[in-house]
């Protein structure tokens, strides 16, 4: 109920803030999503169909350093960097920069899930509240007006225009061609060590799959995995959104796609390496009244050194080089044909 209430409130606030321009997609070029094999269906909202011009506009917004009025000179793509899974390292103790891949399936966004709804909702939030994007700049830029006219049927650019374009771009960011995926589709093999790691991951021996679930490697839910034994505003997580004590210390399960390149790890960047992460799950879990039952007991699942190596070898098969190098997701301003 509470969740529905929050959703309603955010919908109301969106409606209140955006004077809707008439939207017309007829001049835009429809494109279809290339959903990787064995992935669930992607639902595309009727009011934001995927078009070449919408995606191009979104990609531009993602990388344009001139839009951000709050943190001048910084684009989405400066924190969310492609070569590191659309994440990057920030300071330990700060909220970690979350990677972007397969967000098309998400319903909750940010570490504590405070943004709930569609990609459109979170992207309008990012561009309006997080960036306070410079609409004068966008409206004074011919390329923006041109793309907006084609994509949405109007030249006037609002937060909604930019947010919807970002949502389209983000929906195309699908990562599903790692070594694991090829194995999973029967197109490739894993080494014996990787296969042992796979079996640890996908059984209750290491029990990772219950939360890092499906081919998305996340469950759309929040968990307290026992990183800490005591809680305060800084690590209360989802509790700060719901006010419900069952949510103390819970954070959004991050996807493990491309995890080998997204260090540091956890919501506060506390672990620098996958070795540290696996040591934590094996031996350092704090089992408090808030810890998820899947963590079993104080300490954790107790893996041998060899098992830890196997598990890490498997985690490394989740790196999708094609995704990290795909030009469609790269910075358009770096390409010689696009001037700023």
């Amino acid at each position: 109920m509470r969740r529905i209430l929050i959703l309603c409130l955010s919908v109301v606030s969106l409606v209140a803030c955006e004077a809707d321009e008439p939207v017309d997609h007829s001049a835009a070029t429809p494109i279809s999503l290339n959903v990787p094999g064995k992935f669930p269906k992607v639902v595309i909202p009727a009011d934001n169909p995927l078009t070449a011009e919408g995606v191009a506009l979104g990609r531009r917004v993602y990388y344009d350093r001139n839009l951000n009025t709050k943190d001048k000179g910084r684009a989405c793509g400066d924190c969310h960097q492609q070569k590191t899974g659309f994440a990057s390292a920030n300071e330990q103790g700060q909220l970690a920069i979350m990677p972007h891949a397969n967000l098309a399936y998400d319903q909750y966004f940010l570490w504590n899930g405070s943004k709930e709804g569609s990609l459109e909702d979170v992207m309008v939030f990012e561009i309006r509240d997080f960036f306070e994007a410079d609409l004068d700049y966008a409206n004074g830029n011919e390329e923006y007006r041109h793309l907006a006219k084609l994509a949405f049927g109007h030249e006037e650019i609002s937060y909604k225009t930019l947010g919807y374009a970002l949502a389209q771009f983000s929906r195309t960011q699908l990562s599903g061609n790692s070594k694991f995926d090829k194995f999973n589709r029967g197109e490739g093999t894993l080494t014996e060590q990787e296969k042992r790691g796979y079996d640890l991951f996908f059984t209750e021996d290491a029990d990772c799959f219950h939360c890092h679930s499906t081919v998305l490697f996340r469950d759309g839910d929040f968990h307290n995995i026992g990183l800490d034994a005591t809680f305060h505003a800084g690590n209360a997580g989802r509790f700060l959104v719901t006010g419900d004590s069952v949510d103390i210390g819970k954070f959004k399960t991050p996807s493990l796609r491309n995890v080998a390149v997204t260090a540091p790890y956890m919501h506060d960047n506390r672990f620098a390496t996958l070795e540290e992460v696996v040591d934590f799950y094996s031996d350092q879990v704090n089992f408090t009244e808030f810890t998820d039952p899947l963590m079993n007991h104080e300490g954790g699942i107790n893996m041998t050194a060899a098992q830890k190596e196997d598990l890490i070898a498997f985690l490394k098969t989740l790196t999708d080089e094609e995704y990290l190098e795909n030009e469609d997701f790269s910075n358009p301003f770096n390409s010689p044909t696009t001037d700023r």
């Binding site: 669930p40 799959f209 499906t214 759309g220 839910d221």
Partner: peptide, 11 residues
């Protein structure tokens, strides 16, 4: 999808 994430039984 949300139910699959909650209830999937591994291959």
């Amino acid at each position: 999808v949300d139910q699959l994430q909650a209830m999937i039984w591994p291959e």
